[in-house]
Amino acid sequence: MKHLYNNTLGELVAFLQEEFQEPAFRGRQVFEWLYRHRVTTVEDMTNLSKTLRSRLAETTQLQTSREMTRQTSQVDGTIKFLIGFQDGVSVETVLMKHDYGHSVCVSTQVGCKMGCTFCASTLGGMIRQMTAGEMVEQLLYSQRHLDLKGDRVSSVVLMGSGEPMDNYDETMRFVDILHEPDGLNIGYRHITISTVGLVPGILRLADNPRPLTLAVSLHAPNDELRSAMMPVNKAYPIAKLMEACHYYHQQKGRRISFEYALVGGKNDRLDHARQLAALLKNLPCHVNLIPVNYVPERNLTRTSKDQITAFRMELERLGVNATVRREMGHDISAACGQLRAEHMMQT
């Protein structure tokens, strides 16, 4: 059956024209029902004829998932959803409230094969790719929750489980669906694509006309340390990664965000900060310093607050714009993939 959420507006219009000989405006009506009214069944699309609704119900599907559980932070209101799909897999999506609005963190794969040593998403490896429609479904759980308050999702980050550049085409289809003015109308500039450093994907995104925001998970300032923490560095070492980042900036004229998870005793010394500053010299960027989340299977040590402050101040002294990411949902399963990993252990 055709998954309606897996279609851009143009594809949905073409589908109704070709399959049901319906005029173009019917496709727009269906699209608006999906994203403006956010119905969960075809029967709710009341301005369509009963015959068309019946035929759509027989040949298409909307909801292919269910909410398995959710955790709500009592500290800042962050909500983490565990979403289950028909084939038995599950992924996480997170709704966060900021001063500038609400953001949603979406997973692009079930699990992850990148093997980063500090991340819960890689536990159990990568099972399969998410389709664009399945990514849309993840986001809609958050949007429907916000509908109850008369609010909306204002930005999206693809920083959940998985590597977006390893699922590039479906990821681009997903952002196009979000961007459509007749739908959720989320600007490209408010969508962030995060990568562990897949250079071909960064180069491809640089040549992509969509003005998306790029975030690179760096986490170490030299090849020896980064290869130990992130196996991807063996394929795309730092020199190649930085070359791709400079090309991205040249093509887009946009600042790049670098994610740097501080792990006690591994990458958090002041000389690491100096190496990082030298690496990022002459590249307009911003560094997000992330106190590593505790993951039982990883047994990592958290950098002290004083050392985090010293690391940030050293970067700023050397001319690098850096902030410590505000911790959200730290009283729930905060690490990416942690809620899913807990569920897998229980089942």
Rank of each mutant, 00 (worst) to 15 (best):
A132P: 09
V42R: 04
K2Y: 12
N299V: 14
E342C: 07
P181D: 04
L16V: 06
M126I: 07
L16P: 04
D76C: 08
V216N: 03
G77M: 08
I290P: 12
V30D: 08
K240E: 15
V156P: 01
T72E: 15
K2L: 14
N6D: 15
Q29V: 00
S154K: 11
A244N: 04
A310F: 10
L62Q: 06
F20I: 03
M130W: 05
L270S: 08
V216S: 07
T195C: 01
P23Q: 09
E67R: 12
E327D: 00
A273Y: 03
L146V: 04
S90H: 13
V39L: 00
P181A: 10
P284D: 06
D268F: 11
L16S: 01
H286T: 13
V30P: 08
N282Y: 13
Y260A: 10
C119G: 03
K305M: 09
D268S: 15
N288K: 06
S49D: 08
T171Q: 08
H343N: 10
S107Q: 05
I256G: 11
V39G: 01
Q109W: 03
F81N: 07
G329I: 08
L48K: 10
N233S: 12
F20W: 15
N7K: 14
A310P: 08
R254T: 03
S155E: 07
S194N: 02
C285S: 15
Y294E: 15
S121E: 03
I290V: 11
T117E: 10
D176C: 04
Y236I: 01
C336G: 03
S304H: 03
H330F: 11
F81W: 06
L218H: 12
L203Q: 09
R312E: 13
N299Q: 15
G187H: 00
K305D: 14
T192A: 02
E297L: 13
C245R: 06
L148M: 12
Q275Y: 08
Q74R: 13
R189F: 00
S161N: 10
H286E: 09
T301K: 14
D223P: 09
L315F: 01
C336A: 10
N233T: 14
T213L: 09
T64K: 09
S304Q: 01
E22C: 11
R28V: 06
A206H: 04
H343V: 11
L203E: 12
A239D: 14
H249L: 02
A273G: 01
Q21T: 11
I79D: 06
E316L: 05
S90L: 10
T171C: 13
T108Q: 09
T8P: 02
G319A: 05
L270N: 00
N222I: 07
P231G: 11
I238T: 12
R298E: 12
A277Q: 05
P221M: 08
C112M: 07
D99V: 13
L178G: 07
E32A: 14
